[in-house]
Every structure is written in structure tokens, then in C-alpha cells.
Nucleic acid binder design. Structure first.
Lengths: 334, 334
DNA sequence: TTGAAAGCGTTACCAT
DNA sequence: ATGGTAACGCTTTCAA
């Protein structure tokens, strides 16, 4: 910058003005400075600016993993919106490990991000949330549904989605259902969806809900599902807490020679998936994931500017009846 | 930091030492300083450090989109590896728009990243590459296969993958094949794969290769494929340049009442996809995408340290014969 | 309309 | 073993 100033025969203050307040400087001076900048291949050093300014125009993002398209597309939405606003995105992932969340957020905070968008393992009783609240750092939770209502969050109603999809399966005649869920320690969504599942069964007078908890990233469910699929009292339908699990479950069914949906019905709760094509498409609860990411960033911007108050936004979901792969017909052998 | 120094009764120089060279300072002093840091909730401001140091320990990443699991998982790999090394990742995406690449990279450069990992629309004759080369900024291309051999790149052999999969389909009896590809302007991989497709057809004495170019993000292929699927000389197989296209193609086939693979065979070239389960799994060319991301970061670290030289790494691929959804049997009506 | 200068939080050199 | 201090590149106030 000093070089540019010298080359243009002005002070660095003027160069700064040309960059930040082009209107404040006469066209002629600006022209000279711009020419000098181009000539010298000048690149403003954002770190100098960040050090000086109170706002860094940077947001931190923490997701469990990008290997799950639900999170990946939501980050894509955040990224797009940030791009449009000229914000920089700092990305980290926890690999679904609650113990790594604090470290990741700490690193983000050391970067002096203006705010954070987080998907946490468990939004309630979480030290990260306490820290952020205590330090008054703007943040919005994505996909989490915290119990407290004074925390910014964008999600669908997890319990309700699971409740609805389970009811839909019951309505089609299923009486023996199991839920395949991610581990509760690493996903409060999983637990909330299980609650919805249980409530639906209870309402229908069905007892002993089966539950299989599966580690994230697990792709081979054969061992987990053997009893449920091949045992004496095998279930006729599986409700899966995520699309990825539903996909894995379908694979397991097939490897046991069961056809989906004729022998077994499988439902997944995210309802998103690659291009909206692949999944069981049973309950399109989280359909516009990318849009949720955008909204989260827009919301966060409001918080940062102090123009908005933290609150929970629950997006509506709807059931899709699975015309595609792994769809949703009643067991034919009943 | 000054506050910590005062609290601990030492100079800021000592505080800095405790943080950066804990060994250089007596345990007793370190203890006092650490206590003061905890007491004051001290957070080192990374921007101060970045401004002072020549290395920022930050890498920039540019991908076309995170909505494609191929890129999302590769970023996940980069992220994991960066995490392990204590590096920060700055993420941007181009939305497959070549015109946005330069702006995105510029922003990254303004952040003074130590190096870059990029997936470009077209690696050959690309102004971004020229810039990076001219400014001697370390970078590695991911998924791109540049013509020049002095550029760091990690990819599979795109043309060869397409060649192999096409040959496999020919070997199963297909004589009328079409390729469904992403737009060449936004993906050199697409063009390279088309080249491989054409070569296979030529070698087999089949002429007039059909080509349908589809915009990225396109999920409804019915209009594109009507002629190929329902016309008088409909093809018996589709070779798709990516898994996402293959998935969309399968959907289109079904909507025309064609069953896959019985009426139409569909092959996708990535061979990865969500959890490795969903895709046609025809040609597992890019199987370990996440691993490719890790490798890219490791490679980049070598370049940054000046310990490695730019070179192309072509990872092997293999054919998988698609036992899962959308598999790969010959048209039964032949 | 422009410039001088202070200061943001670090690191690292040079003294002590 | 520790401290003083310059410098990193920028923004912004205050004067001119």
C-alpha cells in the first residue's frame, strides 16, 4: 500500500480511501491510484484490515461432516449467501465428535469471526452454547432444535417429522416397525426423531418399539439389521432417522434377498439427498437444505447487525410418498 | 496479551514465548502466565499473528459446488487433514461458473493463504493458473488433469475411465450408446470423459456417438433424453459423465416407463456417491474422494515447504459391475 | 481534498 | 531468562 501511495504520489490514507470510500475522492485522484495499484499488482491484505477493524466480515461454520449431503448442501447455501455479501467463510467439522466441538469453535473464535453457524451434537446443555452466550457472540444453530427458545436456530420439527412418517407407515398397515437411528450422543436430531417415532407407535397402541443405533459413517448395516430383517418376528418396515441410513438400510435389505419396498418398506427422514432423486423420499422434512443454509446466514447477519433477536425458526415439512427408489408400499406378503 | 503480561507481571515478549515456545521458558514462569491467560479468558488473535508472520497457516479451497458429493467429500478430506495439521481452511465455490473463479481466488489471495487447492472448470489455458504460476503461489489441482506436466494435480484418468466403462458396455452387447455429459465449458473432466467414450466407440467401429450436454445442477433430464430413450432408434445404454447425471438419467428412464437395467443400462463415471451405495457403481474411478482431498492437502503442504515439486498424480480406477441400483445388465429385449 | 500519525495484536530481534 | 521495541498492513481521527 505504501508502494502504491508512493507510485501515485499520494499518501496511504488516500489509497485507503480509494479502496473503501471511492466516492470520497475525486475521480482524477482515484484514477491515478487505481492505475498505480494495477501497475504494482497490489492486493489489499485482509489481515491488516481485520486487525484494525472490529468487524472481520468473516463467519465461522461448524458441521458434523461434509460427507453427508444434508450438511454439504447447507454449507453450499451458506457459502453462496456469504459470497453475495462479500463475507468470508471459515469452515470446520467435528466428525460427529462432541468433544471436538469446543476446540473447533475456539479456533474459529481465535480468528475473530463476527458470528457462527453451528450444527452441534446436542444443542441442550452444551458448553459451546454456554460460551457463546456468555461472550455474547452471535450464532445460529442449524438443524438443532434447542429446548431454550432464546437461541437462534433454524430447523425442521424433528419429532413431528418422525411422527408423521411413522403414522403414514402405520396407516399403510405396518404393525411391526423398527427405527434405525444415528447414535444419540452425536445427534440430538436422532433422539428427537426417535421420540416422534415412539409417540406414533404409542398412539397406535403398538408396544415395544425396536431401536437400532448406528454409528455415523457406517455404511454396512447387515450385522445391525440381521435380527430385524431375518429373525422370527422380523419387522415389515424400517423408519430411518436420516436418508443416508435409509440408503444403507435398503442395501442391507437387498443383501438379505429382500426387495424394497415389496418385502420391506423403508422410510428416511431427511428427504433431501443428491439432486432430490435418490432417496426413499418418504418424508421430505428437510427438503431445501441449501435454502436453510442461506437463511441461516441471513439470520446471522441480522444478529450481527443487532437488528434481529435470537429465536427458533421451525420450517414446515411435508410427506412425499416415495415414488422413487426404495419407496413406500405395504409389504405384499401380508 | 498486554493484559495477560501485566497480570502475570512479565512482558508481552514472555507471554508470546509461552504460547509459541513453551520450552524456552521456565516451568514456573509458564505456569504463572498460563494462569493469567485462563483468568482473563485470553484468546490469541490469529489476525495479529497472520499480519506479522509470512506464513499464515491457512489454505484456500475452491470447488465448483458442495452440492455434488464428489466435491463435498473431497473437501471433507482436506478439512480433516488440515485439522490434524492445525491449518485453517478458507472455502469458496464457483458454482461451475468459470468467470467466478478469478474473483474467488483473488479473495483467497487477499487473505494471504499459504497455498490453494482448486477444482477448475478448465485447467488448460486458465488465467487463474497463469496468475498462480506467475506469483509462485503453491497450488494443487484436484480432479483436473492439466495438459502441462509441471502443474501439481491429483486426479483419475478421466478419458481412460470413460474408455473402460464404454468398452465394458460394448462387451455386453451394446451397439447404440449415448453419453450424457456436463457442459464442457464448465468441466474439462466432462470433455475428457467424452473423448474416452468416443475412442471406445471408434475402436469398436461404432460411428456417430450421441452426446447430450446437460447443465450442472440439472435434475430433470426427461426433456433432454426423450429422443434417446423413446425415439425410433433409441439407445440401449447411457454412459454418464458423473454419478449425479447417472442418477438423474435413471430417474428419467423410469419416468418413461423403462426399467434400469433391463430396458436401459446406465453407467456413471465417478463411482462414488453417498456412502458408496447408491450409484450405478459402474466405474469406480474416483472411489476414495475423501482420500483424494487428504492427499491434495498433504501434497500442498509439501509444495509450501518447498520439499516437493509440482507433478501430476493419476490415481488408478477400477470397474465395478454395478450390483446395486441402476446396474449394468444387457438390455433383456435384445 | 489530502496527509500525518496512532494503534490494532502479534512476533522476533537485540539487549540486558 | 526476560524485556524493550520495531514492524507487519491497514483504518481512521484530526489537522491542514
Amino acid at each position: 500500500m505504501r508502494d502504491v501511495a508512493r507510485k501515485a504520489g499520494v499518501s496511504i490514507a488516500t489509497v485507503s480511501r480509494v479502496i473503501n470510500f471511492p466516492g470520497d475522492v475525486p475521480a482524477k485522484t482515484a484514477e491515478i491510484v487505481n492505475t498505480a495499484m494495477r501497475y504494482l499488482n497490489y492486493r489489499p491484505n485482509i489481515n491488516g484490515r481485520r486487525l484494525k477493524m472490529t468487524q472481520t466480515r468473516t463467519v465461522g461454520v461448524l458441521v458434523p461432516t461434509l460427507a453427508n449431503p444434508v450438511f454439504a448442501t447447507s454449507v453450499q447455501g451458506i457459502e453462496q449467501e456469504a459470497n453475495a455479501e462479500g463475507l468470508t467463510v471459515l469452515l470446520t467439522s467435528s466428525s460427529y465428535d462432541p468433544d471436538r466441538e469446543m476446540g473447533a469453535v475456539s479456533a474459529l473464535l481465535n480468528n475473530r469471526v463476527d458470528g457462527l453457524i453451528l450444527t452441534l451434537a446436542d444443542a441442550d446443555n452444551n458448553p459451546v452454547v454456554d460460551l457463546l452466550l456468555a461472550e455474547k457472540i452471535p450464532f445460529v444453530l442449524l438443524f438443532n432444535q434447542p429446548a431454550r427458545s432464546d437461541i437462534a436456530a433454524i430447523s425442521v420439527d424433528n419429532a413431528q417429522s418422525a411422527f408423521d412418517i411413522t403414522n403414514a407407515m402405520i396407516a399403510k398397515g405396518h404393525r411391526s416397525l423398527a427405527m434405525v437411528a444415528g447414535r444419540f450422543e452425536s445427534s440430538d436430531r436422532s433422539r428427537q426423531r426417535y421420540d416422534g417415532f415412539c409417540r406414533a407407535l404409542r398412539d397406535a397402541g403398538i408396544k415395544t418399539p425396536h431401536l437400532v443405533q448406528v454409528g455415523f459413517g457406517e455404511t454396512d448395516l447387515k450385522a445391525y439389521l440381521r435380527d430385524l430383517l431375518c429373525g422370527l418376528d422380523a419387522v415389515t418396515g424400517l423408519v430411518c432417522s436420516t436418508d443416508m441410513l435409509a440408503i444403507a438400510a435398503i442395501d442391507a435389505c437387498r443383501s438379505y434377498g429382500l426387495s424394497v419396498p415389496d418385502d420391506v418398506s423403508v422410510g428416511g427422514i431427511d428427504g433431501i439427498s443428491v439432486g432430490g432423486l435418490i432417496t426413499p423420499k418418504l418424508c421430505s422434512a428437510v427438503q431445501p437444505t441449501q435454502e436453510m443454509g442461506r437463511q441461516a446466514l441471513a439470520f446471522l447477519r441480522g444478529l450481527i447487525k443487532g437488528q434481529a433477536n435470537p429465536q427458533s425458526l421451525l420450517l414446515p415439512h411435508h410427506l412425499s410418498d416415495g415414488e422413487s427408489i426404495g419407496s413406500f408400499r405395504r409389504r405384499s406378503s401380508t
